[in-house]
């Protein structure tokens, strides 16, 4: 187990390093950030002054070496645009994004699992067909469009929910959250649903195919023959067995919920790190982009690790240490 974790961490460090190099040089190739910083009417002299101040006048390999030297000293660079520590800016925004992703994940499970189970148990029921058709829409409708539709319908036409922003936050156990107030839930409902839509569809499909497969298995037939109640068959024997692929996929999907909440955060003006990333890319704020990539890579690696450990808990046949021997 320990060897497994150490190996994972080493791999993670390599991935982080590779990503940093790619992103650093990638953003260098895109353009000179100075033009996104100075006002339109800046004089040549001002432009050159800013380029010198930020070291954009140096050759790229030198800029990279200076950056690496900073990182080795624990300084991950300061945002060009905001002036503050890049990692700090991202960590400030992270609770909002995690909160959104978490609520979306819970929605995916709470809405997706029952619908998927139903569709798997009664595949020919008209409602099951409707669910499956709906899940195709969930997969194929673009997130930004659905987001706008939700805003138009629930905020503009019905006036039930606010269109933008995050509710008032409170800090509890060191975690900043907006989920303790009704106002907070009103604000998060639409963006979380928008973000969850694709995952709900995914869970429906996974749960349905898992259920259909499991209901034909011998142990289910045997349980039925034994006269167990349908509730127990579904709740224990089927559910437990279809959980494995769902946990794996959702674990990975949580990473993508966090990393790619960009569109949802932008549409709903949700003050998370995805919105920050989008703005940083437009402004070529390289330290922020690099820091974001580092944070997200670490997040993915951590999630994968947790998923692997959960996996072994759910399925005794999987032994982490044994896997690599």
């Amino acid at each position: 187990m320990l060897a497994f974790i150490i190996r994972r961490v080493a791999q993670a460090l390599f991935v982080v390093l590779a990503m940093v190099v790619i992103v650093f040089f990638g953003t260098y190739v895109v353009g000179d950030p100075v033009w996104m910083m100075v006002p339109g009417d800046a004089t040549q002299e001002q432009v050159e002054q800013v380029r010198r101040e930020f070291g954009f006048d140096k050759p790229v390999y030198l800029q990279f070496m200076l950056f690496v030297a900073d990182v080795l000293q624990g300084e991950f660079g300061r945002s060009y645009v905001h002036g503050g520590s890049a990692i700090g800016l991202i960590l400030d925004r992270m609770p909002a994004t995690l909160e959104l992703a978490f609520v979306a994940l819970v929605m995916a499970i709470v809405i997706g699992m029952p619908l998927g189970l139903f569709a798997g148990l009664k595949p020919d029921h008209p409602a099951a067909r409707a669910i499956m058709a709906g899940s195709i829409l969930g997969f194929s409708l673009p997130t930004f469009w659905v987001g706008l539709m939700l805003i138009m319908f629930f905020s503009v036409m019905l006036g039930w929910l606010p269109a933008t922003g995050r509710g008032p936050t409170t800090t509890i156990l060191g975690i900043e959250t907006s989920l303790l107030t009704l106002q907070g839930w009103k604000h998060i409902a639409l963006p979380a649903l928008n973000l969850a839509l694709l995952k709900i569809s995914l869970v429906i499909r996974l749960a349905r195919s898992g259920t259909r497969e499991a209901s034909l298995q011998d142990y289910v037939k045997f349980a039925r023959a034994k006269g167990l109640s349908p509730r127990r068959i579904v709740g224990v024997h089927i559910l437990k067995n279809i959980m494995i692929p769902i946990v794996t996929v959702l674990g990975l999907e949580f990473g993508s919920l966090v990393a790619f909440s960009i569109v949802t955060e932008t549409i709903f003006a949700w003050p998370g790190m995805g919105k920050l990333l989008l703005e940083s890319i437009q402004r070529l704020d390289r330290p922020l982009i690099v820091a974001y990539v580092m944070v997200v890579v670490l997040l993915f690696v951590t999630i994968n690790l947790i998923v692997d450990i959960l996996y072994s808990a759910l399925d005794p046949r999987v032994r982490l240490a044994g896997k690599n021997e």
Partner: peptide, 18 residues
């Protein structure tokens, strides 16, 4: 001041009274 970069969302925020 609320920062709402996306154009349609800004319009929606006005129409919904945000």
């Amino acid at each position: 001041f609320r920062f709402i970069k996306a154009d349609p969302t800004r319009v929606a925020a006005l129409l919904s009274g945000d």
